[in-house]
């Protein structure tokens, strides 16, 4: 269309009138370029937003999976804690066994005392 002006001599008034008519009817090339650039920018911004949203969805989905699985596979307790529990259990067990032996030895000790003493002492005496 621009080139038309160079091919045929057109009176200036007419040329202006035609251009004014065209300008009123169509967007200018500059404006058009702006519009395209704006749209492109917007598309790119939307693209970035979409990527961020998709990442957010993935993160939430992963969180849901771990939360639903948690009751089935409880998190392993702190190994330092379990070591202390094991130690307390061992100590309790060994102490109880030792007390058992101590008490039994006491019974045997009284038996030995009585053997020497030949039964003069009443059974209620001693061991409390």
């Amino acid at each position: 269309m621009v080139r038309l002006w160079k091919l045929a001599p057109v009176p200036t008034r007419l040329r202006r009138a035609v251009r004014a008519w065209l300008d009123a009817r169509y967007v200018t090339r500059v404006d058009h370029r702006h519009d395209i650039r704006d749209s492109l920018w917007e598309v790119q911004a939307l693209g970035r937003e979409l990527v961020a949203l998709r990442r957010e969805v993935e993160r939430l989905r992963a969180q849901v999976t771990t939360l639903t699985e948690r009751p089935r596979a409880a998190a392993a307790p702190d190994p330092r804690q379990t070591a202390r529990w094991d130690e307390a259990h061992r100590l309790a067990h060994e102490t109880a066994t030792a007390v058992d032996r101590l008490l039994q030895n006491e019974v045997l000790l009284w038996q030995a005392v009585d053997r020497i003493d030949a039964g003069a002492r009443p059974a209620g005496e001693g061991a409390r």
Partner: peptide, 22 residues
């Protein structure tokens, strides 16, 4: 075996001693 009962209020306590062959 020799056994002895002692009472303290509502509690009866049993003590027993083993003989040489127990």
């Amino acid at each position: 075996m020799r056994v002895a009962w002692t009472r303290d209020d509502d509690v009866w306590r049993l003590d027993f001693r083993l003989d040489a062959d127990d």
